Simulated scan of single mutants.
Amino acid sequence: MSLFKRHYKEDVETQTNGARLITFTEPKNVISEQLRTVRTNIEYAGAALDKLQVVMFTSSQMSDGKSTVSSNVAVTWAQAGKKALIVDADLRRPTVHTTFRLDNRQGLTTILASDLQPKDLVHETMVPGLSALTSGPVPPNPAELLGSPRMAALVEWMRNNYDIVVLDVPPLNLVTDAQVMLPLADGVVLLITLNQTQKVNLERAVELLNLTSTKVLGVVSRAKRNDGDSGYGYGYGYGYGSTQD
């Protein structure tokens, strides 16, 4: 199977069945330990900031694993005793509701387009200490909603009610949704997949991030494991190399 077909299949499976919450179902698995290390490194990278409370997870292109990593890292924060919230701000390809088996008839878009209060639409998940705000119905104008003053006010509400907020947003290069939300985040984590992420796409994403004052907390790279264990292995760093030309 070609790389494109394989990763397209995995992307469809995530859309249909949700991300694999290995940090919850198999906390002693080596991949779970790698994801806890990612969380710790994010905290170290944010130590020099005035605050590290709202963390955005994005990528340069589709199928780089941002939803899987953001959901699992959110789990590890809750497991570490933080009052955590994961927000599905990928309004075009939402996954949080399927990952955590939640109702998505109302969610983020409902709050942004109405007078409903966020406390009424945030769900408790099966993970103690972790709450979730699903995307809600797909709107015709995602970027306008995410860049609205109401979204800024909503993020401020999140800061006042949670220790850590994880934002799962669309890839930077495909739509402007993530770009309009950059000023709301304390830091950004960029996802890449070795031998899949194209160098030109990664360079473009880095250029977009450099246009803002948002702190780049680092790069999470994933690679297919070769030790007989299914799934991916995860690494963390600050470099932008090792990608497909």
Results as ranks from 00 to 15, higher is better:
Asn210Val: 10
Ser32Glu: 00
Pro94Tyr: 07
Ser32Asp: 01
Ile22Pro: 09
Arg6Thr: 06
Thr23Lys: 03
Thr40Glu: 12
Gly136Thr: 03
Asp64Glu: 15
Val166Leu: 10
Pro149Gln: 11
Asn160Thr: 11
Leu133Thr: 01
Ala132Gly: 00
Leu174Asn: 06
Ala45Tyr: 06
Tyr240Pro: 09
Glu26Val: 00
Pro142Ser: 06
Ala89Gly: 08
Leu211Cys: 08
Leu130Glu: 07
Ile192Cys: 12
Ala205His: 14
Asp227Cys: 09
Gln61Glu: 15
Leu116Tyr: 15
Glu33Asp: 04
Ala152Val: 06
Pro94Ile: 07
Thr98Gln: 05
Gly228Ala: 04
Lys28His: 06
Lys82Ser: 10
Glu156Lys: 14
Leu35Cys: 12
Ser32Lys: 09
Pro137Gln: 08
Asp120Gly: 04
Gln34Thr: 00
Arg222Met: 13
Gln198Arg: 14
Glu144Val: 05
Pro171Gln: 08
Pro142Met: 07
Lys224His: 11
Thr14Gly: 09
Met158Arg: 08
Asp227Arg: 10
Ala45Asp: 02
Val75Asp: 01
Thr68Arg: 08
Ile86Val: 09
Asn72His: 05
Gly233Ala: 09
Thr176Trp: 05
Leu116Ser: 14
Leu191Val: 09
Gln34Lys: 04
Ser230Thr: 09
Arg20Asp: 06
Gly129Met: 01
Trp77Gln: 02
Asp90Pro: 04
Gly18His: 06
Arg6Pro: 00
Met151Gln: 13
Ala89Asp: 03
Val96His: 06
Met151Ala: 11
Asp168Ser: 02
Val138Cys: 14
Phe24Met: 07
Asn72Lys: 13
Leu133Pro: 04
Gly241Trp: 13
Leu194Phe: 15
Glu43Gly: 14
His97Phe: 05
Thr125Val: 10
Val188His: 12
Leu174Gly: 02
Ser221Arg: 10
Tyr232His: 12
Asn41Trp: 11
Leu116His: 12
Met181Leu: 01
Thr16Met: 05
Ser70Phe: 02
Ser71Asn: 03
Asp90Cys: 00
Tyr8His: 11
Glu26Cys: 03
Lys215Pro: 00
Gly187Thr: 02
Leu167Asn: 01
Val219Tyr: 08
Gln179His: 14
Glu10Lys: 12
Leu217Gly: 02
Ser148Trp: 13
Asn226Cys: 07
Thr95Ile: 10
Phe4Met: 11
Val96Trp: 03
Glu10Trp: 08
Thr110Arg: 05
Glu144Ile: 04
